[in-house]
Design a protein around this nucleic acid. Structure first.
Lengths: 244, 244
DNA sequence: CGGCGGCTTTTTTTCGAAATTTCTTGAAAT
DNA sequence: ATTTCAAGAAATTTCGAAAAAAAGCCGCCG
């Protein structure tokens, strides 16, 4: 089931089976995971100062775990560090969003092309499974905005990772995940309501089928379109969050 | 002179003008820089355990700075963390080297194409300057193996960064730098002697000129060729460092 | 002879406080 | 009124030791 050979991948290494980062073990890892989640969800807003005392209290731990988590997050680009002046949640802007979307499209383009070219039967099956779970998550969700659903989120992430899972480069997978995280943050900050379950399922199904049929160009086009649509939505939202 | 808009870039942010990472400020940052350098140079060999006591003594600091540096390096992929079992220098292998070379070629391909498409006059000038410094570093070096020369190393890195400096994505620049670092480590571990200064200069000159002439395809081809040659050398070296 | 539990030792991880730096405030001087 | 400077406050960074976990050791039992 797992594709990467495991060894360098930082984020997914502590995932129980696939997707979720429960990352246990040390306090530092727990704080890292929770804080990452809080930043992605917008609970810790862009630009917010991350004072030691505040975080120690919030996560009920001492100084060291907080600091270790912050240092990891800063390498992930979710937090910025200014020597001697502390940490803050990295800012957002229209320009950043555009840069992000551009970069993501480049990276996913390569990764997807490679994945389709080299994906084996295992990859196909993992993809089908990921799609099945995603569509079920969408159907099962009774919320008017299922994007809030933690399960949907995990399935959606897993699907996109499964797509490129056979690209043959842990580096690329890592990069793609970083970019996915960032996009995810913008999506949530924009506060977009996901209103059309049927279309959402079909869009993902089309991507999956094209991938499995090894129609490389089609798949890439569909995925780019999918991502572009998301980016447009984010940018055209009232976007009170982006001072721009 | 600087191209990136500055803000998220982690590595280069503390560089005085360009290239060198003296990254001062906090002890943690100093240790991070020195340790990174020690790993890249092979002074801390692949797979080596990084015990707290050893590092505290080596860098003459307390526990916290060492730990912060380790956490940052682990996100960079130069160090692997195993919760509750400490840190070690990330391993090397033939497969990893191939994966790395592949990924680097993909990333640099995009970055270079974009840089050539969007590079302005400032970019051209920075590139010319970087080349000039590189060629001077090569000529001035009296060592039989100028790759040992710290100055050459910095100039070489600066040149390759200048090439893609106008790609328009800080993400991509960051990724490219990570991959460059890793390649650099393999290069040094392989212990290759750089014996042909003249050819080295001309190879870089050809790349620079093609880039400035905006011959996108040519430039990419030249760069790929350049990187491929390096990868082949590394893999065909006696490579006592790679268990396979 | 080999594997298994319990003990000691080593190493990692975490805490709380000291040291250092930055930020704030307010009074004095131009 | 504005700027400058210094003292106090707040926050970050660093240290050293305590707590927790892993690794090594040795005798014991199957």
């Amino acid at each position: 089931m797992t594709i990467a050979k495991d060894g360098m991948g930082d984020e997914m290494s502590n995932a129980p089976s696939d997707g979720v980062l429960t990352s246990s073990g040390t306090m530092a890892s727990i704080v890292y995971t929770r804080m990452r989640s809080d930043i992605l969800s917008g609970d810790l807003g862009p630009g917010a100062r991350l004072r030691a005392e505040f975080l120690r209290q919030r996560y009920a731990v001492g100084n060291s775990p907080v600091r270790e988590a912050l240092n990891r997050l800063s390498s992930d680009g979710l937090v910025v560090r200014e020597d001697q002046k502390g940490f803050r949640v990295s800012a957002v802007s229209k320009d950043d969003m555009l840069e992000l979307a551009k970069t993501r499209s480049w990276i996913e383009n390569i990764a997807l092309t490679q994945s389709i070219a080299h994906g084996d039967v295992e990859w196909e099956e993992a993809l089908v499974l990921a799609f099945h779970r995603l569509s079920r998550a969408i159907r099962n969700s009774d919320a008017t905005d299922y994007a809030q659903d933690a399960n949907w989120e995990q399935c959606h992430r897993a699907f996109h990772m499964a797509l490129i899972g056979a690209c043959g480069s842990r580096w690329l997978l890592n990069f793609a995940q970083q970019l996915y995280d960032q996009s995810d943050r913008y999506w949530k900050l924009a506060g977009i309501k996901n209103t059309d379950p049927g279309n959402d399922i079909e869009e993902h199904r089309a991507i999956m089928e094209a991938a499995i049929d090894r129609r490389s160009d089609d798949t890439v086009a569909l995925l780019q379109n999918h991502c572009q649509k998301v980016a447009d939505l984010v940018l055209s939202s009232k976007s009170s969050a982006f001072k721009d």
